[in-house]
Design a protein around this nucleic acid. Sequence first.
DNA 1: AATGAATGAGCGTTCATTCAT
DNA 2: GATGAATGAACGCTCATTCAT
Lengths: 196, 196, 196, 196
Amino acid sequence: MERRLTERGEQRRTQLVEFATRRFAENGYHPTSVAEIVEGIGVGKGVFYWYFPSKEQLFREILRDAQRDLRKRQQQAIEGLDLPIDRIEQGIRESMRWSAENRHLFVLFQFATSEERFAPAMRKGEEVAVADAARHVKDAMADGEIPDGDPMLQAHAMLGVASHLARVFIHEQGRSGDEIADAAVEFCLRGILGGA
Amino acid sequence: MERRLTERGEQRRTQLVEFATRRFAENGYHPTSVAEIVEGIGVGKGVFYWYFPSKEQLFREILRDAQRDLRKRQQQAIEGLDLPIDRIEQGIRESMRWSAENRHLFVLFQFATSEERFAPAMRKGEEVAVADAARHVKDAMADGEIPDGDPMLQAHAMLGVASHLARVFIHEQGRSGDEIADAAVEFCLRGILGGA
Amino acid sequence: MERRLTERGEQRRTQLVEFATRRFAENGYHPTSVAEIVEGIGVGKGVFYWYFPSKEQLFREILRDAQRDLRKRQQQAIEGLDLPIDRIEQGIRESMRWSAENRHLFVLFQFATSEERFAPAMRKGEEVAVADAARHVKDAMADGEIPDGDPMLQAHAMLGVASHLARVFIHEQGRSGDEIADAAVEFCLRGILGGA
Amino acid sequence: MERRLTERGEQRRTQLVEFATRRFAENGYHPTSVAEIVEGIGVGKGVFYWYFPSKEQLFREILRDAQRDLRKRQQQAIEGLDLPIDRIEQGIRESMRWSAENRHLFVLFQFATSEERFAPAMRKGEEVAVADAARHVKDAMADGEIPDGDPMLQAHAMLGVASHLARVFIHEQGRSGDEIADAAVEFCLRGILGGA
DNA sequence: AATGAATGAGCGTTCATTCAT
DNA sequence: GATGAATGAACGCTCATTCAT
């Protein structure tokens, strides 16, 4: 049952979500205890269970909201672009920008994908995001801009490039997001354009 | 202190490693308890600690051995190939074959990369493997086979493609490893060859 | 992190300290398990760790509080006595009275002194108490009441007499505290007065 | 059943006793595991149980042998001394020499006295040793050398002085055994001689 | 005499969750 | 809305002891 919260309640809830997200990402989901979260923001244990039915549900909510946010950001980024290729490029750039800005959520995605319990939810969200990209690939094929192929496969390949480069070069090595995005775009467009 | 094991001990140890690996991959590292592992193979709890100093050390050992195995397999696969491009192609194919055959280790890698505690070890291993590939990319550039660029970056991009496609299409959708490897190779070679 | 306790919490804490002290003294520190303590007062295991960070910390707290209590009692006992010799005598008497009343703490002191882990804390507390007595010995020497000598050494000798006699005759043989205190005082005063 | 041991077996046994004694004294009886002992001398676990029925029995044996050794040493030290007072003095000196040389056994005595399980054995041994000293005190009284009093009580007082000074000044502060023995003897003889 | 392997109860501790106030 | 207190199963790990070889 959705609880109707006062403004103060809404703030508390947000505070809990944000603090928990950071701790989950830094420490891992399992090693982060509810006690640690509530102590971190200086409230009693009951508070946590006033806002969330369980630690697991909070985590699922974080995951779901993050996936939604990423998708919305990508949609906004390509809005108004006419050429499929442009949409693909901006989609890649936006996803890398998002990864750079939400490093901790990125780490959470990685963990969630690895654990059976959360993997199905992750798969579903990923599939939706990739389907968006695949549509643009398909359009580009229809327009004759790129050679025919399996659009889902190509979209996934691009996602693989973008997320891996973001992790290694942006998160781990701290290099500039734009620079790495340029490289990712170049690699991906070549990958789908082929010798054309 | 290295313990000298009898043949029976060696077998028990292997049994423990294998069973634990499977459980870690299926259930997650944290949710899998030592009790679950020893019950699974029908021995007392002390047996685990006779062979391993801790659950964490066993996990690190699994990780380290898996990374070594993958690297060795790749090296064997490209042995004797003269052209850098061929080495790159076979490297990709071998890594996907390995992923297909060691699905559970693949999942473990994903988890380990996501948790601060294990991430450094993973990074180091990954860096070694990628450096191998980067050398071939560099050679290909020197030979004028592919346009100049950052070899480490391109090697990582290829790793991103290969691992992501393996996860989604081979592990999750159960498609043929060879077919997906073809697609990965095609995408990657285009990615580095560019308009050439 | 200091926890703020309600009155009920304070009571529970005291209950735990008292019960644990008794069990430690009767059974030994190591042989007494946390489970035994919480079962003894009929609460869940978590309760123990709500009030104390560890079994060891609880033990240290018991030790520290006991040393403080003994010292305070001695200070109160000699308050207002002008002659150093009187202070020494009353100090001995009070320490034996305390030993008689706190037999279990006495045993804990003995154990703690014997184990490397707790010995440093014990030494420190003992040194403080002995320094008090040594000051009176020094004063008596300055007054010419007793022959010169090493005050710390003599104070320790008196502590040796008092604690040993308390253990053997009061605790083990159950003889009257006053009677033994008389003997201890007599022996000690002769010891420091010498042929005077 | 007493096992008849070969010479090599006898050596092994002694090695185990000595190593265990040191570990018990340094680390505590409970915190020292059988595994630690056998690993420390590089043998398998079975060896321990070949020579001793249990860890506890080994400890009791160490205690018993130490008490016997101390007593024998004291008896040898006073052999041939005619005056009771001399016997008392040399008894004190010998016990402090023994304490200085067997610091670890001294610590073990202290622990054993504090734990219900071993305390009765300790008490018995102590009583025997003190009775020896008390006899000399009695003799001295009979000879009119010292004023009348309770010999057992005075003997215990002297033991208290000697053992406490040994612990604090010889073991903890590392001062010279002879110097401290002088002080102990002086204090004790005054204590029993009184104003005489 | 000695080994390496195994046992399994028990340890100190943690933690998601519940609840009275 | 929020607190401090409590629960108790489960955790990773230890250890005295036993046993087949």
